[in-house]
Design a protein around this nucleic acid. Sequence first.
DNA 1: CATGAATGAGTCTTCATTCAT
DNA 2: CATGAATGAAGACTCATTCAT
Lengths: 227, 227, 227, 227
Amino acid sequence: MAEEARDGGAPAKQGDRKATILRAAIEVFATKGYQGCRIADVAREAKVAYGLVYHYFKNKDELLQSVFRAGWEIFVTELRAAVARGQTLEERVGGIAEVCFEAYRRDPRAVRVLVIQVARSPAVGGRNRQNAFEEIIRICAQVFVDAKVGGELRPDFDPSLCAFLFFGALEMGLTAMLMGGSGEPDPGALERAKRQVVESFLSGVENPEAAWKRNRSGTRSRAAKHA
Amino acid sequence: MAEEARDGGAPAKQGDRKATILRAAIEVFATKGYQGCRIADVAREAKVAYGLVYHYFKNKDELLQSVFRAGWEIFVTELRAAVARGQTLEERVGGIAEVCFEAYRRDPRAVRVLVIQVARSPAVGGRNRQNAFEEIIRICAQVFVDAKVGGELRPDFDPSLCAFLFFGALEMGLTAMLMGGSGEPDPGALERAKRQVVESFLSGVENPEAAWKRNRSGTRSRAAKHA
Amino acid sequence: MAEEARDGGAPAKQGDRKATILRAAIEVFATKGYQGCRIADVAREAKVAYGLVYHYFKNKDELLQSVFRAGWEIFVTELRAAVARGQTLEERVGGIAEVCFEAYRRDPRAVRVLVIQVARSPAVGGRNRQNAFEEIIRICAQVFVDAKVGGELRPDFDPSLCAFLFFGALEMGLTAMLMGGSGEPDPGALERAKRQVVESFLSGVENPEAAWKRNRSGTRSRAAKHA
Amino acid sequence: MAEEARDGGAPAKQGDRKATILRAAIEVFATKGYQGCRIADVAREAKVAYGLVYHYFKNKDELLQSVFRAGWEIFVTELRAAVARGQTLEERVGGIAEVCFEAYRRDPRAVRVLVIQVARSPAVGGRNRQNAFEEIIRICAQVFVDAKVGGELRPDFDPSLCAFLFFGALEMGLTAMLMGGSGEPDPGALERAKRQVVESFLSGVENPEAAWKRNRSGTRSRAAKHA
DNA sequence: CATGAATGAGTCTTCATTCAT
DNA sequence: CATGAATGAAGACTCATTCAT
C-alpha cells in the first residue's frame, strides 16, 4: 500500500486509480454493452475494491458517461481540427477518415465502445447519446454543405444525408476491422481500408472504364442526368 | 385492427396472441433496447397477462430471439431474391437498397430493432447476432466479387470491404430516416434517400464537373491512377 | 371421443379417468415429493388434459389428500384387522408386518409415497399427516399395552415407544427394499426380510449363544436386570 | 447471544453472519421443509437483509446443501468414531445410539432437518441425499458384518438389513421425542429412550419370562430354530 | 483513500387456478 | 366431460448503492 509513495511524494496514485477504473470500464463495456456492464465486473477487471468505483464515480451512469465523454471529446476535437485543416472536400473527407482510423489503431476497444455501443444504445444517457451522435453528423454535414456551395459536391445530393452515408461507411469500415482481427490490427490493412473508404465515397465503387462503356452504349450516366 | 371485427363477436383469437406479443416485443425492444425491455412492458403493450408471454415463449431470451429471427429471415430471403433478380452491379445494388428501404417503409420499428439494436448488441443471443450479420455481409460480398470478375468493380477495391461499406451506408441512410421523422416516413423523401445512397455508392459524391476540372489542373484522377 | 361409449353405455370412463389421474399423481408424487409435484406433471403422466385434473379434484391439495387417503385408509383398515385377528404379541406383530410388506408387494410406489413422503412432509395437509401417523402409532401402541398387561412385553419397556421402534424398523425394512431393487421386488427376499424384522424386534439381533456365554462370564443379562 | 457483548460496542460481526444465516436456514427448513423454505423467511429469521443470503450462498440449493453438509459431516465423523471405539456389538450399537441421542439433545432442530427432512426428500441435491443415507447404512452395516463374523449376531440375519432396522428404530425413537416435546427435551426421558432402543434391538421386546414359558409349552423359540 | 459486507428494490420465472370453447 | 389458453400472485435471483471500519 505504501511501496510507491516514496520517491514522488504521493502523486501518481490518485489519477492512476481513476484511469485504471475507466479503462476497465471501457473493456467491460466493449464486451458486454451498457446494461450488461456490472460494477462488479469493472472492479474485478480493474483489480480494485468494489467500493472504490464509487469513490471516483458517483454512480454507474456517471462512470459510463465518463467512459463516453473521455473518448468522445477527444474524438470530436480531433474531428473539428481535421475539418479545419482541410481545404478541399477530398482533404477534409480524408482527414475525417484519418482521425477515425487512427483512433481505432490506438485503441480498438475504445472505438468499439464509442462507435458500436454508446453511439447507438438508447439507454446511454438519453439526450447525451443523441446529442453526441448528432454533433458528429453536424460537423460532417458542414463539410458537405461547404462542398456543395463550392461546387465540389454533386448538386443533387443532400449534404446532411451525405454526412450520414460517409459516417456509415466509416463505421462499417471499422467494423470490418473489428470483426476481422481480434488482436492488434495490421497497419497495412488499415491504410488500405482507409483509402478504399475515402475513394469509394468520393468517386464510387464502379470501374470508370465500365461506367464509360455503359454510358456510350445508350444509357446516360446517372450523374450526368442531374448535371 | 379492423379486418377481423367483421363477422362476429370475438373471432380470430388463437394464433393472434403470439403474434400480438411478438409485435409488442418489437415495439418495446425498439424503444428500450434488449436489456431495458421488460417482460412486464411487453405484456402491458400487448394487453396480455404477464404469464401469457411465458405460455408462448420459453423465456425472455427466446422471445427476443424470435423478434430477431422473425424479421431477419424475411429480410435475408428478400435480399437473396433481389440479388438473384439483378444482372448488373447497378441493378443488384439498387435491388438491395430497395429491399432495405421497402422494409423500412413497411415497418420502421422492426427495422430499427434489427438494424440498430439486435445486429449490434452483444447480449442478443451471442453467436446468432454475429452469424446473422455475417450472413448479410456474405450475400453482399458475393455481389461485389461477381462485379469484380465482370469488370464492373474498380479492380483495386476489396469486394468484402465494399460489402461492409455499402451496408454501412444503407444502415446510416435508414438511421437518418429514423432520426428525422418519428412517425410515418415521407415516401418522397424515402425515394430520394434511396437514390442518393445507391448513386453515391456507385459513382461517388463528388461532382463530376469538379472532379474533371481538378484532374485537368494537374492532379490525376484517383480512379485513373489505378486503371 | 365417442369410440368406446358404445358397448357399455358409457360406464367405465368416469371412474377410469379419475383413477388414472390418481395413479399418475402417486407416480409423480413418489418421484418428486409434494411440493415438487406439479399439476402439469400429473396431467402429462396421466396423458390427460391439464384442465381435466380440476374436474375431478378441487385443487392440488385435494388431489394429494386423495392420494394419501386412498392408500392410507385401506392400510389402516387392514392394520386394525390384523391386530384384531392376532391373539398373542407375536401374532399381532407378525400380522402388522404382514400387512406392511404385502402392501409393498402390491404397490411399492404407493408405499413409498405413504411411508416416505406423506407420513413425514410437514406440508401435506398439516393436521392430516400428524393425525394419520399418530393413528398408526396408536394402533400399534395398543398392541404393546395389551402385551404389557399380558406379561408378554418386557415390563421395563414403554409400550408407546415400542410402537415407534417397531414402526421405524418396519419402515426401514421397506426402505431397504425400495433402495435395493428399483423394479419388481423379489418375493423370497421380501419374505426373508419380513421374518427378520419381526424376529429381531421380538427377540433381538444378538446370538442367544453369545449372549448366554456373556451372561455366564459375569455380566448379568441386560434383560434379567429388569426382570 | 450474550457471549460476545462483553468487551465492546459491536464486536464479532464478520464470520458470524454466515453462521447466523445457516442457523436460521436450519430453523426454517426444519419447520417448513425444503420446498416450503423461502429465502425471505430465512433472511427474516436471521434478521438479515434478503440479499445477504446471496452474499454467502450462491443460491437456495447451495444454502440447503450447506445446512445438510454442516450437520451431516459432524454426524458421520462422530458415528465413525463411536464405531471405532467400541469392541463388542453391544458397545458399538450403544455408541451409535449415544451419538444420535446426544446430537438430538444438543440441537433437536438440526436433527429433525437431517433425519426427517434432508435424508428423505428427493429434492435435496439428488445424489447427495442417497449417498449420505447410504453412507450411514454402510457404517452401521460394517458393525453387523463384524458381529456376524465374531458370532455375536444371530447367524440367520442379514447384516445389512440389520443396519437398516437399527437405524429405523433409532430414527423413530428420535421421532417419538420430536413429536412428544416441542421444547427442551427431558434428559431423563432421553436416557430411558436410548436404553430401550438399544436393549430392544439387541435382545428384543419380548419378556424373557414369557418367551421361556412359551418355549416350554411346546413352541420352540424362534431363535433356537436357527441355532 | 480503500475495502467489501450489507441493503432492498426491481425483474424474471414458475405454477396453481380459472374459464371460454 | 374435455381442452388448453389465459391469469396473476408468489418467490428466486441480481445488482446498483450505501456504509461501517
